[in-house]
């Protein structure tokens, strides 16, 4: 095993499972831009308050967001550290493709593969 993402596999599954749903991605995107109240979020989607709360709970379990109470409101904040960790896997592929593009450039500069 050469996994160096620094995340346990079940943790990764939770993060990406949470991100697999478009409503949850939208909720997270909004929370990243600024904190959101659950009731304000609920007004945005054509679904019940309870359904929106469920999506928020999934995001919370994946530690992508945190929730805090403010008076009668529940406020949702994005957890930037977790979202950041989630990009690590993609980051590995990014490095791979950058390396590939550089190797392609080398081939184009030296089509016959002679040692330079």
């Amino acid at each position: 095993m050469v996994v160096r993402s620094g995340l346990a596999e079940d943790e990764i599954d939770r993060i990406f499972g949470a991100l697999a749903d478009p409503t949850r991605r939208d909720i997270l995107g909004r929370a990243i831009r600024r904190e959101q109240s659950v009731s304000a979020l609920a007004r945005r989607y054509a679904m019940s308050f309870a359904a929106v709360q469920k999506h928020v709970a999934v995001l919370e379990r994946a530690t992508l967001i945190t929730k805090e109470r403010s008076g009668r409101e529940q406020i949702v904040h994005a957890n930037r550290a977790t979202v950041g960790k989630a990009v690590t896997l993609l980051g590995n592929y990014e490095q791979l493709w950058i390396q590939r593009a550089k190797q392609i450039a080398d081939i184009l500069a030296n089509p016959k593969g002679e040692q330079t």
């Binding site: 990406f16 930037r80 490095q95």
Partner: peptide, 25 residues
């Protein structure tokens, strides 16, 4: 498609020698 897929491919060894790109968060 999902993380299992991403991980499995990285486990293949392609991650070897690559640096983490988390600085761009």
């Amino acid at each position: 498609i999902d993380t299992m897929q991403m991980q499995t491919f990285l486990d293949m060894g392609m991650q070897d020698g690559m640096t983490q790109a988390i600085g761009q968060i």
